[in-house]
Write a protein that binds this DNA or RNA. Structure first.
Lengths: 215, 215
DNA sequence: AGTTATGAGTGGTCAGACCACTTTGAAATA
DNA sequence: TATTTCAAAGTGGTCTGACCACTCATAACT
């Protein structure tokens, strides 16, 4: 059952045993795990081995450790996995073009999702944005961010935030009158639920931004 | 620059420094990293701290260690991250759904990209797939993967590979006759460049897979 | 009662010691 | 000379014991 001085990968075994322990003892999110020293004794391994397993889980965002307090099961729905892998991945495929395209893909899909949903497309927030667009200055990213959030896919939201950081921020600018006009049409288009024309408006807006990038 | 005996999270710092080291020294996939003892000396930390960082990266599948040989940069899309995280985390139905939806978004966009491109939509590979579909068994993921690859966005490709691992592999199955029929239509539809009907075929195919998941 | 000091418990780090394994190259052998 | 053997060096895997820095509960003191 317990691979002791066997070949390789004790710490992986510990990771699994930790998972089992969490399940068996019904450790709730935010709940406390046994201390490193106690785990070492219970699992019959050295503390350093326990730590290697714990540190791995911490890097994955599965647990959280607070010096002087202990180790806690963290809310893994905020998995920082994405951030981690992104630092490794984005460095390699550093083509700005790819980042742009991928981000636009996510944005388009969010627009679609809202458009075809009866509830989301009639969300009161669009009305407040319509008022804003008509009366004050609006940041480009503000409205896009809201669309991604409302479309309710946390993973997409995470990725989008990351890509936005790498993208060199044309979204930090204020909208021109022309852009505002497009967005007013777009938000109104939500209510009609016409996917194609809504997407066309979004693409139209993208074209404005891109032409600006060139100049 | 170097946070020495500072508060908390030294090993996270080491993770970053390792990433930088890999980039600076241009360690290729499969290439060898410095030994733990050498890293400890170079980064001016204890060996156990280095190990905690390395073990974390190993659990992520970013590196591979072989006792007696050394530590090697591995192909990140391998390794057990999958089953571990799926047993730990992705039980959350919402997370699962988010992963699915995001993956489908990327796939749809790849289909669109190919469809609207004169060059890509006429790529000879689609003809060979048509033959394959008519004559032999085809894995679901094979054809999807090719579509993502041809659509030529490396970032999307990387994200897609990761998501695919999380998805619990309905894509590892062979296509039914019904599915093959849809794909034959879809590939033919590439040549017509009709985006809407092509996407509809893809969505039709998704529906088949989803209905199978339920049963 | 309110404040302060102390000690126990916890994670963070280090150094040194073995072990198990692989590679390497020199010595022994054919 | 060519081959085999094996001992040493190098590497990851693990354990131990020792500090440090921090938190918290509680005892001690005002």
């Amino acid at each position: 059952m317990i691979p002791k001085n066997n070949s390789s990968k004790m710490f992986l075994e510990i990771v699994k045993q930790l998972r089992d322990l969490i399940n068996e003892e019904n450790v709730a999110v935010g709940g406390k795990l046994p201390s490193e020293r106690e785990l070492a004794e219970r699992l019959q391994v050295g503390r350093s081995t326990v730590r290697e397993a714990l540190r791995s889980l911490e890097l994955l965002g599965l647990i959280e450790t607070r010096r002087g307090e202990g180790t806690f099961l963290s809310d893994y729905r905020k998995h920082q996995l994405v951030e981690l892998l992104s630092t490794f991945i984005l460095q390699e495929s550093k083509s700005k073009e790819d980042v742009h395209k991928t981000r636009e893909t996510l944005e388009k899909e969010a627009v679609r999702t809202i458009c075809v949903s009866d509830t989301l497309s009639k969300h009161s927030i669009w009305d407040s944005f319509l008022i804003k667009l008509n009366t004050e200055e609006v940041l480009r990213e503000d409205i896009i961010r809201e669309i991604i959030i409302i479309s309710d896919n946390r993973l997409t939201l995470k990725i989008w935030f990351l890509l936005k950081q790498f993208a060199g921020e044309p979204y930090k600018k204020l909208m021109s009158l022309e852009e505002k006009d497009i967005w007013i049409q777009l938000l109104n288009s939500f209510k009609n639920g016409d996917e194609v024309s809504t997407i066309n408006l979004y693409i139209q807006w993208l074209a404005i931004i891109q032409s600006e990038q060139i100049s």
